[in-house]
Design a protein around this nucleic acid. Structure first.
Length: 418
RNA sequence: GUGGGCGUAGCUCAGUUGGUUAGAGCGUCGGGUUGUGGCCCCGGAGGCCGAGGGUUCAAAUCCCUCCGCUCACCCCA
């Protein structure tokens, strides 16, 4: 086969599409229950939106974005995440003037040029939530609640682990960063190459290192927790209290860090067993400074994203078998033409009705009816047309009855309604 | 970008120490029932054995290169 989908881009075949529809409808229900409204932004943005929003020196911006020049020489990027684009839209349309708090959600594809592996594609899908305009710790807790509700609807709660941390704010974070850099520099020789590199670029990430030697050194590294200002500490405490009140189990992880620059204060990850190396199924945090990075007013915000493909891996549920109310097996051109009229009538009245596009034998049509999961099959051939009648067969009980052609559609509608 | 595993019908997979027309199950189409589905029986269609090169009288099988898929590192949802 010469033509294949692009690496890391996958076709969603009907069976999987059905399972995704299930996820989406549950997610929508959860979002609606919390009063969120949907927003849909373009998948293409000016590169600037992400470069400024996510951070120039993050991995995503440096080496993972699908960036290209369009025919006018404008630099564009396929969105690698949703938050920056949504915030851009909020600022562009000044939505923050309409309401002090915007509770938004979106669903759709994101694009990152990474090496594909389990639970990671180059085109992947997220459910996103953004609370824009509130500094309340309850906003953080509600966002986490949303993530937990959606994921736990499809995964065994015993397999889930919610980790929470505070990254501090522009007041207290620099103090920690300074001490951490000092510490890393002093222990440089005991750290792996990767960590030495991380120390330069994004020092907080060293805590993610899986190297045991590094970890034993890092045990003595300065932890954000001890540097956090009273305001951040109090904020954190209220978030945790709210989570308890919501009845959501969590653990604090002082080393939890985010890969995007815009996060402040609350940060969380919801991990699941059985996902392989990419175990985070949902994550997010607070991003109070992001709006000003995009030239907007100083709007506080919290958000989260659920990885749909990862959620799909957790969802063991099978797609439901097909169900059809009625299959019309018509033989001969006269009957087949008449059948089209019935089809139109019944379908408009909400029945799921199928029919053979090809003029096949009755046996073949019955087989097709069976495959379609038909509860009833209407059989009408030349013989029936002559007698002005039709046969209605119950596919489960095999009982058959003869119906008059007069008012047939109305009668069928009545008989097949369960 | 780096490393490991795997590439044979639409799908899941057999294929002996290299040996003649490459097989099975499921699916699909048709027949057994001149107009009645599922179960059963019979039959058909469907393969550049991932691609290219090499060794050999002979390669799905051995060697090399490339490509693809996959898992992991990195990083992240």
């Amino acid at each position: 086969m010469t033509l294949k989908a692009v690496k890391g881009f996958k076709d969603i075949l009907p069976e999987e599409a059905k399972r995704r529809q299930r996820l989406e409808s549950v997610a929508r229900k959860v979002f609606e229950s919390c009063g969120l409204e949907e927003i849909r932004t373009p998948i293409l943005e000016k590169t600037e939106v992400f470069a400024r929003g996510i951070g120039e020196h993050t991995d995503i911006v440096e080496k993972e974005m699908y960036t290209f020049e369009d025919r006018n020489g404008q630099l564009l990027t396929l969105r690698p995440e949703a938050t920056a684009g949504i915030l851009r839209a909020v600022l562009e349309h000044k939505l923050y003037n309409q309401s002090p708090l915007l509770k938004l959600y979106t669903m759709g594809p994101m694009f990152r040029h990474e090496r594909p592996q389990k639970g990671r594609l180059r085109q992947f899908h997220q459910f996103n939530v953004e609370y824009i305009g509130s500094s309340s710790p309850l906003a953080d807790a509600e966002v986490i609640f949303l993530a937990y509700e959606i994921v736990s609807a499809f995964a065994d709660e015993d397999d889930l682990l919610l980790e929470v941390n505070s990254l501090g704010c522009p007041e207290c974070r620099p103090l920690h960063r300074k001490d951490l850099l000092l510490f890393l520099n002093n222990n440089k020789d005991d750290l792996c190459e990767d960590c030495q590199r991380r120390a330069e670029l994004n020092p907080l990430r060293v805590f993610d290192c899986k190297n045991e030697d590094c970890q034993s050194v890092l045990k003595f590294a300065p932890v954000i927790k001890h540097y956090i200002c009273p305001e951040c500490a109090s904020h954190m405490g209220k978030v945790l209290d709210a989570l308890e009140a919501f009845g959501i189990p969590f653990v604090q992880n002082a080393y939890l860090v985010r890969g995007l620059d815009y996060y402040k204060r609350t940060t969380f990850e919801l991990k699941a067993r059985g996902l392989g190396a990419q175990s985070t199924v949902a994550a997010g945090g607070r991003y109070d400074g992001l709006s000003t990075l995009l030239d907007g007013p100083d709007l506080p915000g919290v958000g989260m994203a659920v990885g749909v493909e990862r959620l799909l891996l957790l969802m063991q549920e099978e797609a439901r078998p097909r169900q059809t109310d009625l299959f019309i097996a018509a033989l001969g051109s006269e009957a087949r033409t008449e059948a089209l009229y019935w089809l139109g009538y019944l379908r408009r009245n909400g029945l799921k009705v199928e029919y053979s596009l090809e003029d096949k034998s009755l046996k073949a049509q019955m087989k097709q009816a069976d495959r379609a999961g038909a509860r009833y099959c209407l059989i009408v051939g030349e013989r029936e047309m002559d007698e002005e009648e039709a046969i209605l067969r119950n596919m489960e009980t095999k009982e058959q009855e003869t119906l008059e052609l007069d008012d047939l559609p109305e009668v069928l509608l009545e008989k097949t309604k369960s």
